[in-house]
Design a protein around this nucleic acid. Sequence first.
DNA 1: AAACTCGTCAACCGCGAATCC
DNA 2: AGGATTCGCGGTTGACGAGTT
Length: 236
Amino acid sequence: MGRQPCCDKLGVKKGPWTAEEDKKLVTFILTYGHCCWRAVPKLAGLRRCGKSCRLRWTNYLRPDLKRGLLDETEEQLVIDLHAHLGNRWSKIAAKLPGRTDNEIKNHWNTHIKKKLIKMGIDPVTHQPLKKQQTESSSQGSSTDSSVAITTPLSEANSNAKEQPLSNHIWMEALDQDESWWNFPTWGTEIYSDFGLYSSEDSLNRLLDYYKELGDEDFELSSLGDFNRLVGIAEKN
DNA sequence: AAACTCGTCAACCGCGAATCC
DNA sequence: AGGATTCGCGGTTGACGAGTT
């Protein structure tokens, strides 16, 4: 008896989502929210597994998503955070409003990784490649002498990185003290200060998206429902 | 114009963690 | 307490478009 699959594979559709499926999922979630993902496809009338619905929503359909390539500031932030957190993409994504872990992971693998290698920096350790090679050849030598790349954030915390204990504290701070990172996630004007979309913008983009597809009649069941959800999110 | 290669990114898979009963 | 269920994460895959030969 192995682990149960997340969904019965029979009759479950896989592969790219169609506009029709997107529409069903968006309409359903904006109207009712998602009680549990396993139930969403059934209730929304989709032949998908809950996991697939969750992924589609979080990575593509969520109204607060910011689309397009990461700008230089975001890229730099990703590099800084990766130096401290490693491949914990969801933690990194949490510090970049409107970006998903998948998006950041993809961007890292396709752009940043290559960029760093080109610059002679190991994308895994964030240490200069040559230095690393010398060190690995003389195994067991002290790691304190390693030269870290200096980015605004890593420079500010360079001392912490060199000390295991303070490094631990830095990691904890990243995990626990979210306050100084916190950008508004739902519908406020502050979004525009950061070049981000407000939830209303996002809503309009979704509506435009369906209209582009020739679905002039598409409307979210009511803006009131959407605002109710925003209200709940703001309370949390 | 066709064949091939490469880059990108949406989506899937398997696993561990969290939660439920 | 512990087995079952659900969720979320990170690694990987594969389809597709762009560029090159």
